[in-house]
Amino acid sequence: MGDKIIVKNLDLFFDTLQALKSINLRIKTKEILSIIGPANSGKTTFLRTLNRLNELIPYAKLKGEVYLDGKDIYKEDISLPWLRRKVGMVFALPVPLPRTIFENIAYGPKLYGITSKAELTELVEKSLRAAFLWDEVKDRLNESALKLSGGQQQRLCIARTLALEPEVILLDEPCSGLDPISTAKIEEALHELKKEYTIVLVTNNTKQAARVADRVAFFLMGELVEYGQVEQIFTVPKDKRTEDYISGRFG
């Protein structure tokens, strides 16, 4: 398979603080790349460069290139709404908008102009099914999304992203606030989603990375220490620091 995303010499500064140091990484089409590393190592920041969400922070400055299907997404002529529909994002804490379940899923499609009720209904069902949430909510689509449990809310957020019909899905520690059963459900969903989408999963949980990822990238203090096939990283890491982290010696 080809490369979906290519990151070249990526530096990111918050004012004078360098958050990402010369990152070079290729993300393959329809794989799950898991990004691991201790807190504050730049994982989330890196994820947010892939759909240009870091631009919301006024003092963030970026150098380097990020290609999506061979197109530099930091070029002037790139439309941000277009990019963010192609590269969907699921945040660490589930943030349902204060609307109904249906409205939450339909929010994205409506933004780019889908208004037909039938089309939206179909899209909502398809997205909820893909996120393994349909059976639990199909009878209460018009209830407030805020009434769902934490695990359901996070799957709602995944469904909401799927409704954009993206090509890449970025997940930022999607299970950090969830119990083991909810986590298992989300991992199950990820396995299925891999068939259709390219997935980048940031996680604090190395075991989760080992369970779901095809390849793993290890970040430390803004640097990409190494990346490779999941078996290789977990059994014969090339770098001492990776080994230390995986064996639980720090982080």
């Binding site: 919301l56 277009w82 963010r84 943030v95 929010y107 933004l111 954009l164």
Partner: peptide, 21 residues
């Protein structure tokens, strides 16, 4: 909450769509 804006933008909303919706 700031996160509402982030969610809307990440779902492909423009700034104005995010504000009005």
């Amino acid at each position: 909450p700031y996160s509402y804006r982030e969610v809307s933008l990440s779902l492909g909303g423009t700034k104005w769509q995010t504000i009005t919706r």
